[in-house]
Design a protein around this nucleic acid. Structure first.
Lengths: 94, 94
DNA sequence: ATAACTGTTCGTAATATTGCGAACAAATAT
DNA sequence: ATATTTGTTCGCAATATTACGAACAGTTAT
């Protein structure tokens, strides 16, 4: 009934469905990577809350985190990022 | 901190964050308008549930409903649809 | 007038989301 | 060895989302 592309699109859109996550993705896509601490300094939310948002973006596949002890470097997951882009592009150009 | 474009983008993305709503928008953008009954027949959800999803899309500004008694004709809200498209396009092309 | 049709609203329930602070884990610095 | 730094996880609370059926409202058919 509802196909896989539609489900995937909804999944990615859902991940984009919060201002903080939009901000994080925008930051990452501009500078490719950043430490979560950089975001904590700027964003007016508790670090635990940011951590949750980062987890959601990771679960959705849009970012990936790499431990560079004691910090964690987050980057865009390029492959899935491109997939999301393609899905949305096609969606809006029907 | 987080600007209006980011908030708007998140709002539209949130509306797109469910498979049923993606399906509805895709259907509407393909045939421009449709009656909610057409969707009820196809989608495996209760009509009250569909009504809620339609309300959310309407609240997000992506669709608009017009009563053609006893039915309701739903159409894409072109202006906001274009805005969402532009916001997402810019977002992914940073 | 009554029945049928279309869709919304209401009440309810289960689950998910958002947010915080405290506690924790792991590595580094003192 | 102890303290500091960085970030996650836990526990909690408030609110939002998703879903359903029943009841309702408005229009059209009988």
């Amino acid at each position: 009934m509802i196909n896989d592309r539609q489900k995937k699109l909804a999944r990615y859109a859902k991940a984009l469905g919060h201002p903080v996550r939009v901000y994080v993705l925008q930051t990452l896509s501009l500078q490719s990577c950043c430490y979560s601490g950089d975001l904590t300094e700027i964003l007016p939310i508790a670090k635990s809350t940011l951590s949750q948002h980062l987890k959601e973006l990771k679960d959705a596949g849009l970012i990936q985190g790499e431990t560079e002890a004691p910090r964690v470097k987050y980057c865009i997951n390029k492959q899935n990022w491109e997939e999301a882009k393609e899905l949305l592009k096609t969606f809006f150009e029907l």
